[in-house]
């Protein structure tokens, strides 16, 4: 039940509501829990509420980890 779906804020309307794009599907999302979000930000959405801003740089962490591991395994072999 705790599913969170990442989306991108494409517009902010009145009363802390935003239009969020989920890979092509647009939905209205409340910003009450993350009022600092701006147009262009990525966020995690759960039951119609943005819960957390997603840092695009942090999203690259997995890839960095991959590089580290590939490097480490390259050294050891």
């Amino acid at each position: 039940m705790c599913l969170g779906i990442p989306g991108k804020i494409v517009a902010i309307t009145e009363n802390q509501l935003a239009e969020v794009d989920f890979s092509g599907v647009r939905r209205e999302v409340s910003l009450m829990l993350c009022p600092e979000l701006e147009v262009g930000d990525y966020c995690l959405v759960h039951v119609g509420f943005a819960m957390q801003r997603l840092d695009p740089a942090e999203a690259q962490e997995t890839l960095k980890l991959l590089d580290q591991f590939l490097e480490a395994s390259g050294e050891s072999s």
């Binding site: 039940m1 705790c2 409340s30 009450m32 759960h46 039951v47 119609g48 509420f49």
Partner: peptide, 17 residues
């Protein structure tokens, strides 16, 4: 309203709304 901490803030926000 059922849920864990993930959902509770959204439920609280609805009560306030």
């Amino acid at each position: 309203g059922v849920g864990f901490e993930t959902t509770s803030p959204a439920i609280a926000a609805a009560v306030m709304e």
